[in-house]
Design a protein around this nucleic acid. Sequence first.
DNA 1: ATAGACCCTGACACTGGTGTTAAGGTCAAC
DNA 2: GTTGACCTTAACACCAGTGTCAGGGTCTAT
Lengths: 130, 130
Amino acid sequence: MKIGELAKLTGVSVRSLRYYESQGLISPVRLANGYREYSPLAAETVETIQLYLNLGLTTEQIAGFLHCVLKNKEAFCAEVMPLYESKLEEIERQLHQLTQIKLNLEERMASIRREREGSGAEFQAKSGEE
Amino acid sequence: MKIGELAKLTGVSVRSLRYYESQGLISPVRLANGYREYSPLAAETVETIQLYLNLGLTTEQIAGFLHCVLKNKEAFCAEVMPLYESKLEEIERQLHQLTQIKLNLEERMASIRREREGSGAEFQAKSGEE
DNA sequence: ATAGACCCTGACACTGGTGTTAAGGTCAAC
DNA sequence: GTTGACCTTAACACCAGTGTCAGGGTCTAT
């Protein structure tokens, strides 16, 4: 099938399909006129790529084990587990940081609300403006 | 004081101080030779900018209320609260998404571990490689 | 007057997948 | 033989703050 068909079939843009190819994730053959010709299996490959992208892996990382997971079960691809582990650590760091910022924000918001109630001005937040 | 001194004093790079100026956050006067001359109050301004950047606000957003918060308490600056509210919503969306990915990752990791234990191969994760 | 520390502006790089456009080739149907 | 849908490559834009370099000016102490 041609790139437009694959795009419709998978819901992934033509642009992205070409990008995946440039990153070594998928290698359609070329017809005499230069058009890409995808095997019917390509749809599954693209969906697999999307799955890993949605887990937050990069195309470079996916390129490292895509061959393997397309042929075997994940459990047999040694590269996957370390990636999952480091990704999990990264996500936990991000969760921690976001949670800190959230607490900080909530504290400041609470503080503002306290000050506004404390003063006689009932939420007339115009006073101090220069 | 000159920009290098302010950088040392605040721990913010010279590059960043110039960037803040380009974004309208701080406006040092210029000496006859073109050098920036910062008032002693600039250190406090820079620290305030850092505080808001660490909350995840952009320089553009900070520019909208920095004048006010340098003169008054936050509670008197009407622009602040809506920004905090929308930032909080954004962070909650991100937390939700990250949590989903984390659950997904953990589920897949558990699944891999189950499959490996299920087979006779004791963590010899080489088998399936092509 | 010269070394060395400091200042200036301007510009590219980075992260990374995707949108978008430009300029042009191919093909099927009419 | 021309229209229109589809394909090709190449390139810039995005987010947004920071690092870094190039090319050049200023000031101080020796």
